[in-house]
Design a protein around this nucleic acid. Structure first.
Lengths: 108, 108
DNA sequence: TGAGATATGTCTAAAAAGAGACATATTGTA
DNA sequence: TACAATATGTCTCTTTTTAGACATATCTCA
């Protein structure tokens, strides 16, 4: 019965936390959009539209959470994203507030 | 600096998890809409529009996560909501999938 | 050479979510 | 008695999000 909800819930969590997940991934190492997409798809099992991801990356950069630099590899261009100090503060804030909110309710 | 993000993040979490929070509240005891509203506002500190909550309660009932019964108290009518077995399965599924997704990334 | 994967980007139409008003009635308190 | 709080409900306009196409180019492997 729980399995009935599974797909729906995983999709929901992935959507709600896409920016957070992206920032988290980038705390491990700088990465380009396509790799971020593949990584998230691999860990969550949810297909991610690149038409959603690229605009998100732009938005995160505009907010100052990410910075990017273009990398040439032969004729292939990659836009490498690095998380900023502000970006790290955001995920830290998100994590602690989430924990705080959850502990106010009593969840096992 | 973290404080800068606080309001935005709390609001975001409250919105994303409004249905889950509502279901959780109702695992403690049956409750009517207005009380749910006040409880959530008290624990989160975020104002909740009743124009958002009442339609949500209807939707949760239609999905079979809640059932309701009207209670008369003098001239005052309250619609008491009780969580169903299916509703409990949903929050259990949500909780375990969230934990699972979080542990796939490595978060302290 | 052709197909599939890698790589990035935009745009539009449709769907969903949001704010906030309109609407009404009771209860408690100053 | 008047005001604030309790209580429930709908509706519309606006904003945001989403799906999915349009667009282009390279790289790898059969």
């Amino acid at each position: 019965m729980t399995e009935q909800f599974r797909k729906e819930i995983v999709q929901r969590i992935t959507r709600n936390l896409l920016d957070i997940q992206t920032l988290r991934l980038l705390t491990a190492e700088p990465m380009w959009g396509y790799k971020i997409k593949k990584q998230i798809e691999a860990t969550t099992g949810v297909k991610l539209r690149h038409g959603a991801l690229y605009p998100l990356l732009n938005a995160l950069e505009q907010k100052g959470f990410l910075k990017s630099q273009k990398q040439q590899q032969g004729g292939r261009t990659r836009k490498i994203y690095t998380i900023t100090e502000k970006g790290m503060e955001y995920i830290d804030a998100y994590n602690s507030i989430l924990k705080e909110q959850i502990s106010k309710q009593n969840i096992k």
